[in-house]
Amino acid sequence: MASETSDGPLARWTQGVIEDTEQRNRLYRSLFYVVTLFFLVTTLFPFYWLLVLALTPNSLIRQGNWDLPFLRPQGFNWEAFVEVFQQIPFHLYVFNSFVLALITTVIVLFIASLAGYVFGRLEFPGRGVLMLGILAISYFPPAAFLVPLFEAFTGNVVVLPFVGVELFKPPRLVNTPGAMVLPFSALFLPLSIFILTTFYGQIPEGLEDAARVEGTTRLGALFRVIIPLSAPGVATASVLTFIAVYNEYFFSSIMALSNQPEQWSPLVGGILSYQTQYTTSFNLMAAASVIGVLPVVILVVVAQERIVSGLTAGALKE
């Protein structure tokens, strides 16, 4: 009793939290809300800012008369969302990115499934070395591949260095999806391979054996039993790949020789074409960005449950 009276308010409060369950739960709850609020603000504020910019007429944006501290749209210029499509065929840029992402995801999932099966379920000499190799290559900067790939995709004859012997003439792939899907697939494969290796490795051996005795090949067991049971992992790998390609600009801006939707210029290329030599339509860029986000938002909402369990399952496994 004597010690309690000599304690300060902080010490008393601490003691209360330690001893009183209800007080402790109250603290946990408030901490949860504080942290949640922090993450919500940091993630949602940029999106809110995009909306503000899109709704504010471009002339007012450049004046910069924001009534601080509340950043709210100056005016309500929803026509920007229509103008986006009038100035350039923005939907074609979205379509390009969507198709590139879709093709890449399909290719990556197929190859990574085979690789994940082999790495996750089979014992063979050199497995560790190969895994390490994939890991190492996944850390190479993509820019390092750019020059040789550009050379090859523009259809230049491949020449043996120093000797000058012409080997073969690759097809000219620039301005086609091929020039983008190929490097994207290669770049995003390692991540998917790692995710799927973890997941496929967890499926009990007995299930695969059962499927094989029942009448599938190893490959059949992979597609009929292992992949369906690894749905969270497959969903995670595909969403990560899809979003990464959908956002990609570096490779595609170079492989599409000019910023035209007919040359498979991607979404970001479309957004940037609201910026000309003399004017920059910030409100249109913001509106286009909001529109561009929508397909991914829809995708994530649909796949949300599986992605969350997939990400945490993968994390726990490590």
Binding site: P204, G206, L207, D209, V213
Partner: peptide, 16 residues
Amino acid sequence: PKDRGVAMVFQNIALF
């Protein structure tokens, strides 16, 4: 295995 005409029951049951 699929062409051997055998069926198997596993210790861990292994239902899909």
